[in-house]
Amino acid sequence: MTIRAEHEIHRRRLGRNLGVGLTLAAFILVVFGLTVAKVSQLGERGAFAHAPPGAMGQ
């Protein structure tokens, strides 16, 4: 039997690492998209409503 550098276990590990990597990337995208959505909603609701009158114009 020859010793092969590539074993089935290596393929599994690669698949697992890719899966975890892609999941983390997707999580980052979700958090980013969520942040954009939340901030845009703040804008709609008047995020600067607490500012004194005229403060936004200066």
């Binding site: 039997m1 010793i3 276990i9 599994r12 590990r13 698949g15 697992r16 890719l18 899966g19 975890v20």
Partner: peptide, 19 residues
């Protein structure tokens, strides 16, 4: 002489974690 490696634990793939 062939070298036979036995007793390698089962290693989970990503699909196993999804399952």
């Amino acid at each position: 002489t062939d070298i036979r490696i036995t007793g390698i634990p089962k290693e989970a793939g990503f699909g196993d974690y999804v399952a």
